[in-house]
Design a binder for these strands. Structure first.
Length: 467
RNA sequence: GGUCCCAUCGUCUAGCGGUCUAGGAUACCGGCCUCUCACGCCGGAGACACGGGUUCGAUUCCCGUUGGGACUACCA
């Protein structure tokens, strides 16, 4: 049994988007599951569209996701000699030929064919001319005109194509670079790729590629065409569907493992299980459980999964991902950060939420939300806060249980319900009316900060009642 | 237009001939819990596109219709 070798071959004409990431994930997961290898290859034969910025962006996105590769990145642009070698082989054996039809006349013919309601395929003008190379010539593959080609797809089953539907595709452009279908085949052959998992938008290309494998006399890899990810209007994903780049989700406060979980679950299932860690996915992933119908990208479900991952990760795991967002709120302190995170996990759907929610822990001075202050920091509560202050000063410890006892005492003495006391204290401590539990907050902040914030609140009440 | 793929709640899906008065998740709506907000828990509404077959029996198999999608480049 040969080792599984999969690959991910993005073309560097933009960022890594959600759909591409999912394809990468499937290939990566399969390789990791099987103990095989995962190869990264940059398909940059289209010089006009490829940029090194895109390459960087794609690598950055893969790294963030934690998708690592065993070989590469290979660049097709650096493999021209290899393609030429294979092309020469095909020309020598008569399986490919030079063609001097100009793009203009081809375009012309395509239009008239279409207008007549016919299939716009190459008419074979140069097929039997026996032309040799000349400037501007391209190389075409001599495609069989009869018979059928069967794609044995591990996801879709056998798909039969009539060879007469296929035409003599160009395999080398007039500038000497190979075209996609040919480069892919040569690369996959020379890189020993034995498992090709890709979007089903490639299913129609596959018979051509199979014919190329045959002409080159190499065995076929296993093909698996996964259904596409669709936008909210059920069409192919594109920019107009909103944020589609992987790094955009990073920047919106998503965890890589959450995006992975969501993306893999979109099109693959494991019974009723929804939540997976990356290790679990590696363990459980298999081609058999990939569905056959296209799925719609649903940001709401992604958000829910993200919240779940935030909830079930340890503060230590969350910390490095949270740091950049804290920085945006000018929080650099490391003090009691993990404890603070713990109090925010069940109330944060994104890391941005969490950073926002954590801000009050680290402020020197609390600024009160206007509404909160006018509703809860009123003169009649001043005495209660003062009473609390005294009790806290003398509290033996500052853990949640002790704190709760202090409040119970205070409730008995004042006859007030917890809610009546907790909200003003919450405003004093956080500036607002929404926060983690009051005892949690206090024990995280510690006695000194709590006391000084209560003092500040009392002074605030005094100064605002003067006017 | 041609070729190919696809079709279970709004969405993601389980289901691989009887277990389905179709299960889970998400979103939505109630309720409980409760110091706020969440989390959690309980409950509700919500789907097998349609028509033919095959079969004792179809969500499950076959064909057609309809609908959606992809491809149809000297893009990948």
């Amino acid at each position: 049994m040969k080792k599984t070798r999969t690959r991910f071959p993005p073309s560097p004409s933009g960022y890594l988007h959600i759909g591409g990431a999912r394809t990468a994930l499937f290939n990566w997961l399969l390789a990791r599951h099987d103990g095989g290898e995962f190869i990264l290859r940059i398909e940059d034969t289209d010089v006009a569209r490829s940029t090194s910025e895109s390459v960087d962006a794609i690598l950055e996105a893969l790294e963030w996701l934690g998708i690592d590769w065993d070989e590469g990145p290979y660049f097709q642009s650096q493999r021209i000699e290899i393609y030429n070698e294979y092309i020469q082989k095909l020309i020598d054996t008569g399986k490919a030929y030079y063609c001097t039809c100009t793009p203009e006349t081809l375009e012309e013919k395509r239009k008239t064919a279409l207008a007549r309601g016919e299939k716009p395929k190459y008419d074979g003008t140069c097929r039997d001319k026996g032309l040799s190379w000349s400037p501007g010539a391209v190389v075409r593959f001599r495609s069989p005109q009869t018979g059928t080609t069967v794609v044995e797809d591990v996801i879709k089953g056998n798909v039969v194509f009539e060879n007469r539907e296929l035409d003599d595709l160009i395999i080398q452009r007039s500038d000497g670079t190979p075209t996609y279908n040919f480069a892919v085949v040569v690369d996959d052959i020379s890189m020993n790729i034995n498992t090709v998992i890709r979007g089903d938008d490639h299913l129609n290309n596959t018979p051509r590629q199979i014919l190329l494998y045959n002409a080159l006399e190499y065995p076929l890899p296993v093909f698996g065409h996964v259904p596409m990810v669709l936008g909210s209007d059920r069409s192919r994903l594109s920019k107009r569907h909103g944020a589609m780049s992987v790094t955009a989700y990073r920047d919106m406060g998503y965890l890589p493992q959450a995006l992975i979980n969501y993306l893999v679950r979109l099109g693959w299932s494991y019974g009723n299980q929804e939540f997976f860690t990356v290790d679990e996915l590696i363990e459980k992933f298999s081609l058999e459980n990939i569905g056959r119908s296209a799925g719609m990208f649903n940001p709401e479900k992604l958000l829910a999964i993200n919240a779940e991952h935030i909830r079930f990760s340890s503060p230590e795991e969350l910390l490095p991902h949270l740091k950049p967002f804290l920085k945006e709120f000018n929080i650099e302190s490391d003090e009691y950060l993990c404890q603070a995170i713990r109090t925010l996990q069940t109330r944060s759907k994104t890391l941005i939420d969490m950073a926002k929610g954590a801000a009050f822990y680290f402020r020197e001075r609390i600024e009160y939300e206007e509404k909160a202050a006018s509703k809860f920091l009123r003169p009649q509560i001043k005495g209660v806060l003062q009473g609390l202050l005294q009790k806290l000063k003398s509290a033996s410890t500052f853990d949640e249980t002790t704190l709760e006892n202090v409040f119970v005492e205070l409730m008995e003495e004042t006859g007030l319900k917890l809610g009546k006391i907790a909200q003003p204290v919450r405003v004093a401590l956080t500036g607002g009316t929404v926060s983690p539990g009051i005892f949690e907050i206090m024990s995280v902040l510690g006695r000194d900060r709590v006391l000084s914030r209560l003092h500040a609140a009392i002074r605030f009440i005094e100064s605002s009642s003067e006017n």
